[in-house]
Structures are given as structure tokens and as C-alpha cells.
Simulated assay, not measured.
Amino acid sequence: MPRPLCLIIGHGPGLGAAYAQAFMDAGYDLALLSRSGARFEGRAQPGAEVAASPCDAADPAALSRVLDQVTRDHGPPEVMIYNADLAMFGTLDDLDEAQFEQSWQVAALGLYTAARKPGRAMAARGSGTIIVSGATAATRGQDWTTAFAPAKAAQRILAQSLAKQLGPKGVHVAYILIDGVIDTADTRADFAKGKPDDFFIQPARIADTAVMLTRQDRSAWSFEIDLRPFGETW
């Protein structure tokens, strides 16, 4: 039997790599898109196919071209994970209009473009899963999330619209609201110096949840599921 295809938009170290490994282990081939064109560096399963392509999710024309190429070369994806993000943090004094717009383009416009390509193809065949990596910033703003929070809020409400449009056509759209600091070398250095291991949310466990979402029966689909470390204040 051919392996189904998982398309990950926003592959790279940390969560993107964890998604790739989890879906590889779950029996999927991988199509990986990122600005850098980062390749899969995990444990490949026998017979699995992996393709990695450079792509800027903030550029609708470029993203559309790459999505078309993925479909031509590897067939339509059964799962699409939108993990593209731009950690554009700062206040009004720190960020300009171009940075604000770029944050929105990556979070929301890129998801819209992706939905118009693989999303509509999934709807046409009546099956598929779209998973969006979200954040608590989508539900509340802070002084340092002047650009990030509006972008994630737009992404979240777009995902909800997609779920209502595509769900009746057999496509499961789910939004993972990540409430915590994801454990990577960068976050440990930049956001949480000296914090103990159990302060962080492990990317592999987020990826486990994504796999679980693809296995939900359509009689009991989740749209939004929040994940946080056990000690997180919320």
C-alpha cells in the first residue's frame, strides 16, 4: 500500500522537525517546505519518501508554485500542517509597519493560500486533515506581542472559518493552541534562561497530539485543542 503524504509548511528545528518525525513514524511520506529548504534529519522508515523545498509562506505566488509542484511530484497530501511562523516580538517603539505586515503575511495570508490549494483539493475528494500550529497570543495581546498577537488571532479565526467551510465536505481542520515555551536551544537561550526542564513544552508531545487529531472519528472532531505544561499559569 502507498504511504499517504503529510505536507508540512514551516519545517525546521524544533516543532517542525517533531511533526516530521511523528508523521514519518505514523506511516506517512513527507513534503517539507521552509524558507531555508531544511531537509529531514530524523529517523526515516524503510520505503518512505521525503522531499524538502525552499519556500516563503508569506509570498502567495511562490507558495502556490511550490504547492502545485508537490502535488505533481508526490500526489495530493492527506495531511497538511501549517507551522509557518514569524516570531516578530516588540512594542510600537520596536516595530514598524513593514514588520507588522510581514508577521500577518506569514501567519494568516500563507494559511489562506495553502487552504486554497491542498485544502480545496481535500474538499473535492471528501477527506483530509489540516492542522494549524497556534499560540496563546491568538487570544490575548501583551505589550511585546504588538505584531505577533494580531497575526496569530487572524490565523486562528481564519482556521475557524476553514473548519466551518471544509468540515461538512469531509476535511478536518484543527487548531493547536500552544500555551507554553517550546523546548528548543533558541528558546532556552532567548526566553527562558535557567528554567528547569519541566517548564517547557516538548515539541514531540505536540506532534503526538497532531497525529492523534488525524485519527479522530468524524463523529467527534476537535477544532481547538490547547496544550500547556502542567505547571503553566493560565
Rank of each mutant, 00 (worst) to 15 (best):
I176V: 10
A107I: 09
G126M: 03
A174S: 13
A108S: 13
I81G: 08
G110M: 08
H74F: 14
P168F: 05
K169P: 08
G180Y: 00
K152N: 04
A124Q: 13
L158N: 02
W144T: 01
A84I: 09
G170Q: 00
S103N: 11
G180V: 05
D73A: 13
A107H: 15
P168I: 02
W144F: 12
L177R: 14
G128W: 04
Q160V: 06
I182G: 01
G110S: 11
P76I: 11
A174M: 01
A87D: 14
R116G: 13
L111C: 09
V171N: 03
Y175P: 01
S133D: 07
A147Q: 08
D85Q: 12
T129P: 00
I157P: 04
L166P: 11
I81E: 02
A174P: 03
Q102D: 07
P76S: 12
R120V: 14
L92Q: 06
A107F: 04
Y112I: 12
V173F: 04
D179M: 01
E97T: 15
A149S: 15
F100P: 02
M80Q: 05
I182S: 06
S161W: 07
R120F: 13
T136H: 10
A159C: 05
S161V: 13
A149G: 06
Q160P: 09
D85P: 06
N83P: 04
W144S: 04
R72G: 15
I182V: 14
F148Q: 08
A114Q: 07
A147E: 03
D96T: 05
G119K: 01
V132N: 02
Q160A: 13
P76W: 13
Y82C: 02
P168H: 02
A123I: 10
S103W: 10
S103T: 14
T129W: 06
A115F: 12
W144V: 02
I157Q: 11
T129V: 13
A121P: 10
D96R: 00
I81Q: 05
P118H: 00
G134C: 04
L111Y: 12
Q69S: 15
G75W: 02
G119M: 03
M88G: 00
K169H: 08
S133G: 05
G90A: 01
L86R: 09
Q105M: 12
A153L: 07
A137N: 04
G128L: 03
T145S: 12
D183N: 11
Q142P: 03
G110C: 09
G119V: 03
A98T: 15
A107M: 04
A123G: 08
G141A: 13
V132P: 03
V171P: 08
P77G: 01
A135N: 14
V173R: 00
M122K: 01
P150N: 02
I157Y: 14
A163Y: 02
T113S: 08
D94T: 05
V171A: 01
E97N: 14
T145I: 04
G75D: 06
G75S: 04
V79I: 12
D143H: 13
K164C: 04
A98E: 14
V181T: 15
L86Q: 12
Q102V: 05
I157G: 01
K164H: 10
L166N: 00
A163Q: 08
K169E: 15
D96V: 07
E78N: 13
L162V: 05
T91H: 02
G75Q: 03
